[in-house]
């Protein structure tokens, strides 16, 4: 900056070059954003698959790491409290898939709630989950008279453990 007044011709050249670089940088960032918006994330990098989508992959569906998302099919939950072994079905309205998971599920886990499981579809057709995540909706509801939120979870795990 201090040398600009001393070497006006050189400084001018430097300035054009820097401006070119700035435009290049700005352009690269804009293209990056555009790619993320219109291409990349939209189609190829889907965060999770539905059971229908996973099934539609045919043979390629098996033994590969994927994230699967769907609704816990009501009354499909089987919980073994001693072995910490959890089995349930997830569905998307058209396809249902059996899921096997180890360990206690998150507190919000219950019939009819959306869940995401990370793992792989075994050749037996059962999805072996290594990570179970519960998807919360955007609804926040006051409890009904006399209803205690913590009971929902305990009821589910206790009754299914019988």
């Amino acid at each position: 900056m201090s040398n600009e007044p001393q070497e006006p011709e050189n400084g001018g050249e430097k300035r054009t070059r820097r401006r070119g670089l700035t435009f290049l940088g700005v352009g690269a960032v804009l293209i990056g954003f555009g790619y993320l918006l219109l291409g990349g994330i939209g189609d190829n990098l889907v965060y999770y698959l539905t059971p229908s989508e996973l099934e539609a992959r045919g043979d390629a569906a098996y033994e590969t790491s994927v994230r699967l998302g769907g609704v816990v099919i009501p009354e499909s939950v089987q919980w073994d409290a001693d072995a910490l072994d959890l089995r349930f079905k997830v569905g998307d309205g058209t396809t249902e898939m059996e899921v096997h998971s180890k360990g206690a599920p998150p507190q919000m886990f219950r019939d009819g709630i959306e869940v995401l499981v990370e793992g792989r579809l075994a050749s037996s057709g059962v999805f072996q989950s290594t990570n179970l995540m519960v998807k919360h909706s955007n609804e926040y509801r006051a409890p009904e008279e006399g209803q205690r939120p913590q009971d929902l979870y305990q009821d589910l795990l206790n009754t299914e453990g019988e």
């Binding site: 889907v46 965060y47 998302g69 995401l116 995540m133 998807k135 955007n138 609804e139 926040y140 006051a142």
Partner: peptide, 19 residues
């Protein structure tokens, strides 16, 4: 725009009065 674990934005329609 995309599938997420995070829920979509809430609105007064999805949030009960006390909150």
């Amino acid at each position: 725009w995309w599938r997420t674990l995070h829920q979509p934005s809430s609105s007064p329609a999805t949030v009960d009065d006390p909150y």
